[in-house]
């Protein structure tokens, strides 16, 4: 692997980065990993001092900044005046990890489709994404290594490598280059440090199980699992609570509703996160449901991740972040489902 060729690796001290973040805060809203109610979340910070140093997987992914839980997409009046609402502000998203960077790629492609989604795309255009690479698997629930999402190619503007006392960084595009010149300054480059990081990362991930068996053929494998017993087995435990979808960094289904104000003179059209695991997601106006059974809903969701969307995005739409595994009280895991489907493992 000659990854270092033609790739500049600049360095910046940790203190230098904190100062750079405080400088960014004069021009941008900055969202980063921070503590909130004894928990670690991605949220807006007022100063670099609020940023958590130790990475811990968050409950929600950073997709919430580009695809909010609830968003006004237009306003209307009783007289018939309709105004499209597209809101975005200059924002830096600091410190997102490879799983979430790969998830963002799926989201970017989905929302750019056809004419593109103005609300999502304006937020992306107005943002600078600074990723931090992972040197090892973050916890026992994450399984990025099974879908190769510990590797970052694109999806962020700048990527940092944590070397303890300093970061090595590379920019991924022109936007990242200009940003780095303006805020990070030039503190020389260090290819040796990057090589050392990469070696340690390869060694750490080399100890994992590696990618799923037949990873690139999963869409075809899933195509033939309509009657697999696993769907009924998982449905027995599944609470259909939708938690897996709320926390998923690549789920982008939404509901659209008109909310007239109580004065009945004006209203808003809102879009909100929806979830295909919920019982009325596939209800239609005449009262039928396309996926009344929980087993159908689980099968559909897994096919979205490893079949339907994988064909479209040429990568699994599951990035193995492990958020749904952590959130599921019934211990349902996409990792385990894929392993059983491919015959790699048997149900314990």
């Amino acid at each position: 692997m000659n990854k270092t060729i033609n790739r500049p690796f600049f360095q910046i001290t940790k203190d230098g980065m904190l100062a750079a973040i405080d400088k960014m805060l004069q021009d941008y809203s900055v969202a980063a990993l921070t503590e909130k109610n004894k928990n670690v979340v991605f949220d807006f910070v007022k100063s670099s001092a609020e940023i958590s140093n130790v990475y811990k997987p968050t409950i929600l992914s950073p997709k919430k900044f580009f695809f909010p839980q609830e968003e006004v997409i237009l306003e209307y009046t009783a007289e018939g005046k309709v105004t499209a609402i597209i809101e975005s502000k200059p924002m830096v998203l600091f410190g997102i990890r490879p799983c979430d960077i790969n998830a963002k790629k799926v989201m970017d492609e989905a929302f750019a489709e056809s004419n593109g989604d103005a609300n999502y795309l304006s937020k992306i255009e107005n943002s600078v994404i600074i990723g931090i690479d992972c040197k090892q698997v973050c916890d026992e629930d994450s399984f990025c290594y099974r879908v190769n999402s510990q590797e970052v190619t694109t999806g962020c503007d700048i990527l940092l490598y944590d070397l303890g006392e300093k970061y090595i960084f590379e920019y991924k595009n022109e936007k990242g280059r200009e940003f780095a010149i303006k805020y990070f300054g030039s503190q020389g480059s260090d290819h040796g440090a990057y090589d050392k990081f990469l070696k340690e990362k390869e060694s750490n991930f080399g100890k994992t199980e590696g990618p799923f068996k037949d990873l690139e053929y999963l869409p075809g494998v899933f195509e033939h699992t309509k009657d697999h017993p696993i769907w009924e087995e998982e449905a027995k435990r599944c609470l259909s609570c939708g938690s897996c979808i709320m926390v998923c960094p690549t789920c982008y289904c939404f509901d659209v509703a008109d909310e007239l104000a109580l004065n009945l003179k004006e209203g808003q059209r809102l879009r909100r996160w929806d979830a295909c695991m919920l019982s009325d997601f596939a209800n239609v106006a005449t009262g039928e449901s396309f996926r009344k059974e929980v087993s159908n809903r689980i099968r559909h969701r897994m096919n979205r991740k490893f079949n339907f969307l994988m064909r479209k995005h040429h990568q699994p739409a599951c990035v193995g972040c492990g958020r749904c595994v952590r959130a599921c009280l019934a211990d349902i895991s996409p990792k385990e489902i894929v392993e059983i489907i491919t015959g790699e493992k048997e149900r314990e």
């Binding site: 929600l60 609470l239 939708g242 938690s243 709320m246 959130a327």
Partner: peptide
Amino acid sequence: CIECKKKE
């Protein structure tokens, strides 16, 4: 659960 997750 949906509301708990949304509030992290």
